[in-house]
Nucleic acid binder design. Structure first.
Lengths: 204, 204
DNA sequence: GTGATATGCGGACCGTAAGTCCGGTTACGG
DNA sequence: CCGTAACCGGACTTACGGTCCGCATATCAC
């Protein structure tokens, strides 16, 4: 997405453009950290980044696009680990263990970016469920569920699990001094959900 | 909330005020039905209701307050049935049956008001979890969960269940021709969640 | 190095929406 | 019928997301 060969139909991104994109992302995260999610107006982002407002829109299309890009940046590592990394996060481990590991990873991202999450949810409005990032998580979860509990509605459960990853809810449920509380809760919930299939052996 | 005795510290609501409030609520639901949730601007509501904008704000405080009032109106019946109605919705039935009945009722409301739900979620922004309506549903769910599965984190599960009642998600998951699909899905999920406690008798 | 050109830049501009304010109006109790 | 407190309306303010277009400059072929 950032690298490009000189030849071919696509032209490489101009150096100043890349520099500006980085500046805008940095500015966004600074504003996000300072004030709440509503504190991040595109005027402010542009001003803090030292670029014009038009530049922000040309790079990211919209407020939602900007926040999504930031979110993407923060979750790229997890996505790669899920696809090609070592078990239990990557392929090779039993579904339940992969699920546990995945929720651990996703929970960590969510806990560390609750404000960004909230802002993104609010900006997204429509078609949140067509978002490639969402689809990717959903597909993964759905596959794991289907593998562990073929008798349940895996697609629905995946949506339900993802619905709990709400920025506001996470902030509401995270006590000071225990930043991983939410993750453990949702891991327990997932465990209860696939506790033991009627025809399988007991889990505990 | 609408009735008031003539005596006492509080004064009865003036007749025109009550009439206007009704007009505003009606206008809101009409706009909600016609266009999407973003189609409901307070200017438009006021215009359609035939009142001034100030009136809307005096009655409802804010956009969020207006939508919340409408939602409240739509769910008052369920709330009453849960508190004092006959089983299995009201008190007296086993927790699992009450939960099933409650999810049926809440699901019906959500399915019938998905657009309103979305709009409310977006407007609410902060402190969605301090909202009296939310608290009420959460308390009920939490109690039922605690009764059926004392070994699980009832408060968290209640939040998780409620998180799935997302207007956009419901629209996304409701196929044409099967308006109760979502409800059945979430009922099945709840059933799986408290399928059988390790120390209790089998449920199925 | 130099010139051609596409790419990118900036910020003025626009439409819209939430929320505020205050002078005028009216329902209500006595 | 009158005094008053509650209420009404809509102009006004502020702020934001998004668009547009004339200007600048990085890049590349030569």
């Amino acid at each position: 997405m950032t690298e490009q060969h000189t030849q071919g139909v696509e032209r490489a991104e101009r150096a100043d453009a890349a520099r500006n994109r980085r500046a805008v992302l940095r500015a966004t995260e600074r504003l996000l950290a300072e004030g709440g999610g509503d504190h991040v107006s595109l005027d402010r982002v542009a001003a803090l980044a030292g670029v014009g407002k038009g530049t922000v829109f040309r790079r990211f299309g919209s407020r939602a696009g900007l926040l999504q890009a930031l979110l993407e940046e923060r979750s790229a590592e997890l996505r790669e680990a899920v696809r090609n990394g070592p078990p239990p996060l990557g392929p090779g481990a039993p579904a339940r263990e992969r699920l546990h590991a995945f929720l651990d990873g996703l929970g960590a991202i969510a806990e560390g970016n609750a404000v960004l999450l909230s802002a993104h949810e609010q900006a997204c409005a429509e078609d949140r469920y067509g978002d490639p990032s969402y689809l990717s998580w959903h597909r993964h979860l759905s596959t794991l569920f289907a593998e562990a509990r073929p008798d349940l509605d895996a697609a629905f459960l995946a949506h339900a699990l993802l619905a709990v990853f709400d920025g506001d809810l996470i902030r509401h449920l995270t006590p000071p001094g225990d930043p991983r509380h939410f993750t453990r809760s949702i891991q327990r919930m997932a465990a209860a959900l696939l506790a033991d299939a009627p025809t399988a052996t007991r889990g505990r």
